[in-house]
Design a protein around this nucleic acid. Sequence first.
DNA 1: TTGTATGCGTTATCAA
DNA 2: TTGATAACGCATACAA
Lengths: 338, 338
Amino acid sequence: MGRKKTEPGLSMKLVGSLAGVSAMTVSRALRDPGAVSDAVLERIRAVIDELGYVPNRVAGSLSSNKTTQVALVVPSLRTAIHAEMIQGISDALRQHHFQLMISDCGNSMALEEAQIRGYVAQRVCGIILHNTRHSEAALRILAGAGIACVETGDLTRQPVDSVVSYSNAAAGAAMAAHFVEAGYTRIAFASLPVKNRERIRALRQGFVTGLRKAGIVVPPALRLEVEPGMQGGARALSTILETAPRTQAVLFAGDVLAAGAVFECQRRGIPIPAGIAIANSDDGELIQNMVPGVTAIQYPRYDIGVRAARIVIERALGRQSGPVVQDVGFSVVRRGST
Amino acid sequence: MGRKKTEPGLSMKLVGSLAGVSAMTVSRALRDPGAVSDAVLERIRAVIDELGYVPNRVAGSLSSNKTTQVALVVPSLRTAIHAEMIQGISDALRQHHFQLMISDCGNSMALEEAQIRGYVAQRVCGIILHNTRHSEAALRILAGAGIACVETGDLTRQPVDSVVSYSNAAAGAAMAAHFVEAGYTRIAFASLPVKNRERIRALRQGFVTGLRKAGIVVPPALRLEVEPGMQGGARALSTILETAPRTQAVLFAGDVLAAGAVFECQRRGIPIPAGIAIANSDDGELIQNMVPGVTAIQYPRYDIGVRAARIVIERALGRQSGPVVQDVGFSVVRRGST
DNA sequence: TTGTATGCGTTATCAA
DNA sequence: TTGATAACGCATACAA
């Protein structure tokens, strides 16, 4: 019966015994140094330093029923737009000594569910999800976990809990308004396949609807769906030039596609915007610096990360209880490409 | 004495009592379903499903003294080259149901040390570090933790434990050989400030030394250090054109700088490579697709991530004990820019 | 195949 | 300011 005694490893008990105090006092010394007398504190610190003792937070978490780990699930770890948000989350978490767990799930609800299950098992104190569609099981797990959950990908009307985002549909409409104002009438849209990509669908919907209100129709043949990567953007441009050579302007959903299209124009010697105007759904360093600079929608990605992290932290610290909805907005930045 | 009884929360004990078995049997059912009779297994699963029970891995980790969390510390979360490696790590970890914790530390050893301390407190089963210089305290903590540590940024000669990388110095030398072969003699190098950036220093050293062996000197004034971002690359190019207009070729350390330089050439109407040749230390989607394509050194970033993760996993699973050193190599990919 | 006893290292609570 | 005690929820070791 019982358990074989393995080598005990360092513990507060050991530190305490070497410092002439109880384990409890060591615990206090580490979490609230002010609650311990200076002499004792110094002895404890000396022992810890001598031993190279690092407290076991697994045990601490079990005992206190609290953790400082926050989980993030993004569609992809490779994407620059997520990198901005991740940096924001990471920076905000670090300030409060919280830690970040991260994974990607593409557009798969099943994969997202598996990740969520793993994080809840790990008893993270909060979860940030970029996608806004979730499996029934995932929703049940999240509801049962009783932790903060922040969605960041779209200003969804039925949040799991909290949301920090912007309206993709409104962004599409804003870009439509820009195209109208610029006087374009023969317009195309290019993106990855919209199936299982709610955000892109919303963006396209907002764009197409906005144009229609101005009397401009984007025919289905000019709502292109291409493969990922810069070659996808190049292909979209080629297709447009071949099937509808009089097209004046294209909105791309994603900097990789837009960049691919701009490079294709350079290869073909087509001037931008005189030959064709190009805009992108997402601003970023590349988009800004290309020649010409590409008109794009600017979202405060870093700020979204910071805000999402703060919501989780506040909740974990017990300072805030209810769901929060924050619309961070966006702006259309016009550059030389339109 | 004792602790007030809070609401107990779900546990294996509860699940077991509802299924008519002991907590231990529930534990077995979850970790090794084959060790439990079918009837019992089914009852347990039904109860778990009914309750929405998610096992508490914090408790499990404390009891077994094992975790499935792996930590990664990179200089920056924003960089595309790290994104590739991160994706590789993430994919490899997921296969074995390990989880990834991540943070960035810039080039600060102090910050890295703080991160390491936090991860060891969390009892991660392995740590992957991109930087190869560490504080004394960090080294002590790592030594005491008794877990795998894999460095990925350079093929350092004094690894903490394991290494999966390539030689930055050799890469620089290879690019020097390419420049020599291409017939360039008036050559420049541009990077971020090398202070506290060992990898860049090694690359430059390899490059400059390689050229010198061919009788080509890169004067100090043409070893530029610029600010981060594409504007840094643009500035480097401008400076070179103004101070040494006869320069034939430049090696940039980093795709952002190289891209900035290419864009600057486009703005100025300088043809590449006829006006000036440009190469980059890092291959990537942008570098490949620019017009013209940029000659670059290709490292198997994704593969580095996969290998590093596997080393950690093998060690955590007890299948492998000793340090591993893997030189993944690199290759120079020549494109239109040189 | 299943159960019992015990301990993992910490923290909450109360007593001194 | 410090200590004693009892949990936290699970897995190890052994017994049945």
